[in-house]
Amino acid sequence: MKTLFAATSTILALGLSPAFADNTLSLEGKTIGVAVVGTQHFWDREAFNGATSMVEELGGTVVPVDGGRDNQVHADNHDVLMNRGVDAVISILGDGSVEPKFEALQAANIPVFAVDHPSPYAVNNTTSDNYYMGTTIGRYMADAIGGEGKVAVFNAFENSLRICGIRTGLWKYVLQDYPNIEIIQPELAEEFANAPEDARRQTLDLLSQYPEGTIDAIHVGCWDQPAIGVVQALEEAGRTDIVVTALDGGPETLEIMAEDDSPFVANVAQQPRLIGQTAAENVARYFAGETLLPQTYVDVIPVYGQDGAKAAYSKLGYGEIE
C-alpha cells in the first residue's frame, strides 16, 4: 500500500494526466518481456521485481529473462523475447550490446521501455535523476574532506553507460570548483561482476601505493557495490580515516554507513523498485494511447552521515537501524 501510494504520488508529481491514474491502467491480455542484466545486486533485483510485480498487478503476463550479469547474455535475451513474441519489452540496464537488439525490436513493432539505458530505439527510459545524483555526491564528498585532498575514483563505466557518464561527469564538474582536490591518475576500473571482492583487492593495492596521509577519499562513480569492498579494505588496513562516497544507497550499503565511525559518509539513494514499477506503468500508459516523454525521472534521496543513513533506511521502507 505504501509503495502504491509512493508510485501514485510520483506519477502525480510528474504531472501526468489524472485520467490515467493507477486504477484505470491495465495490461490485461498483454505479454511483457522483462530483461534484466543480472539479479545478484540489490538494485537490479529490486528494479526487476518492481517491474515484474507491477506487470502482474496490472493483469499482464511476464516473460522474465536474466543476463546473469553478463552484458552479452543480456543482449541475446532480447532476441529470445522477440522470437517468443511479446507485446512489449522492459529492458533493465545493459551496455552498448543491447542497441542492435532494441533496433530489431523496434523494427518488429515491439516497443521497448528501458530502465537506466537511454536509447533512440526505446519509447521511454525510466531512471533516477542522475544529474542531481552526480552534483550532490560531488558537493558531499568535497565537504567531507574539507574541500581539499587527493581522491581515488572507481570509474569503469563513464564512457560506456550513459547514466554513469552523467553521474561521474557531473561529479567531476563540481570538483572543478575545488582546485585543491586532485583526482588520482590513472582512475581505477571496477569489475562488473564480483564488484565488492574485486574493489577490496584493488583498494588494498592502492593503499600500499599511497601511504597514510597521502590519500583522502575513495569515490565510486556510478554505484556502490564496489564501496562494500572498499570499506572492508580500509578496515583491514586500519585506514578508516579515508572517506568513502558512492551512489545507489541500497539497504546493505546504508547499513555500512550507519555503523559507528564508518568511513562511508555520503551516498545518494535511489528507489529501484519504484523505478521498475514506473517502467511497467509506462508500458500500460503507452498501450492506453498516452504519449510518453522520452525520460521519466524518479526521485532520489541524498544521504549524509550515520544519522542520514538511518533516516534514509527507514524512509525507504528497509526497516529501522538501532
Binding site: 553478463d70 543482449a75 552498448g96 550490446s97 542492435p100 562488473f192
Partner: peptide
C-alpha cells in the same frame, strides 16, 4: 554478438 567489447564475457 556484443556489438563491441564487453568486459567479463
Amino acid at each position: 554478438r556484443a556489438n563491441g567489447y564487453s568486459p567479463g564475457a
